[in-house]
């Protein structure tokens, strides 16, 4: 991984000037191993069943991390603050949208009058 020579280190662009064949190979290797583990975990009986979704989530988040580090070359190091802060904000919004929606919809679902009862009430 060679350091960029021309532009100041203070500003870095995602995915630019930090790659090497070894880096991409390592990223591919990690990604393949994590993917195969995910597919194995989803189909196996050796793992306690309620733990499988948590394991799958951990593997997926790990793999996303691998992609961000090895393919996007985003790090938490100096000079990458803008990119990293944007990433954190993106992750925050994604979490808000996904878990917020699921929470609200589950709550609505639990409090809704069953459809057959609703039909009878309207008559």
């Amino acid at each position: 991984m060679s350091e960029p020579t021309t532009t100041a280190k203070a500003h870095r662009t995602p995915g630019k000037g930090h790659g090497s064949v070894a880096g991409y190979l390592a990223g591919l290797g990690f990604a393949v191993v994590l993917t195969l583990t995910s597919f194995w975990a989803a189909g196996t009986d050796t793992i306690w069943e309620p733990a499988v979704p948590i394991l799958l989530a951990a593997l997926a988040i790990g793999q996303m991390g691998v992609h961000v580090v090895f393919f996007f070359h985003i790090s938490s190091g100096p000079g990458d603050a803008n990119n990293f802060l944007a990433l954190l904000f993106g992750v925050f919004v994604v979490g808000l949208v996904v878990f917020g929606s699921m929470l609200i919809m589950a709550n609505l679902d639990a409090n809704m009058v069953p459809m057959d009862k609703l039909m009878r009430m309207q008559r």
Binding site: T7, H11, P14
Partner: peptide, 20 residues
């Protein structure tokens, strides 16, 4: 280069928000 890269990174994050 830096502005374009950062701007596109923001676009990608917003695209991921849409997927979310």
């Amino acid at each position: 280069d830096v502005v374009a890269g950062f701007g596109f990174w923001l676009f990608l994050l917003s695209d991921i928000v849409m997927f979310s």
